[in-house]
């Protein structure tokens, strides 16, 4: 059995230790906000925070956790959608289909935590999530707006 700290709660996981964190979150813990898009760490739809750092959970076996890590998913980013990135996203109507946005928001919130003054160049180097609807123009605006909200 693995004890994991997700969104501030200690949860028990009893399954296969090879299972990627993505699927443990979605199937065993009922946290379906984190999405499956590729399974090979290319698209970023599965991005969560492990101790504040953006991690693509589709290739992260749950057995690799030591138990002391704090995992944050989109459901735990804020209680009420009040995180500056969520607020900026709402203000600019960033999502289209929205399927990639939990991962996008988690990647962006990790970037801004590390680098509250992220430049366009920082954004280009760090945010590599795929969005097939093509929300990038508003994602970029949203990041700059979120910087002001912090």
């Amino acid at each position: 059995m693995i004890k994991i700290n997700v969104n501030g709660k200690i949860r028990n996981y009893n399954g296969n230790e090879d299972k990627p964190l993505l699927w443990a979150l979605r199937e065993d813990l009922g946290l379906t906000g984190t999405k499956y898009g590729c399974g090979i760490s290319e698209c970023g739809a599965c991005t969560v925070h492990i101790d504040g750092e953006a991690v693509r959970s589709c290739v992260f076996p749950i057995g690799a956790l030591e138990g002391s890590e704090k995992i944050t998913t989109i459901e735990g980013l804020s209680d009420d959608g009040s995180h500056p990135v969520q607020q900026a996203w709402a203000e600019l109507d960033v999502p289209q289909c929205g399927f990639c946005q939990p991962g996008m928001i988690m990647a962006v919130s990790a970037l801004l935590k590390d680098n509250p003054n992220a430049t366009d160049k920082d954004i280009d180097n760090t945010i590599t999530n795929i969005c097939r609807c093509g929300t990038f123009a508003r994602v970029r605006k949203g990041i700059h707006l979120a910087k002001k909200k912090r």
């Binding site: 199937e27 009922g30 804020s78 959608g81 109507d93 929205g98 946005q101």
Partner: peptide, 26 residues
């Protein structure tokens, strides 16, 4: 503004891939 944004920002929106039902198999 769009009417469907809020739940796209907090992970609550249920897409087909997210559907869960009692006794469901995959």
């Amino acid at each position: 503004k769009r009417l469907d944004t809020a739940d796209k920002l907090n992970g609550k929106l249920v897409y087909g891939a997210d559907l869960a039902m009692d006794g469901m198999l995959m």
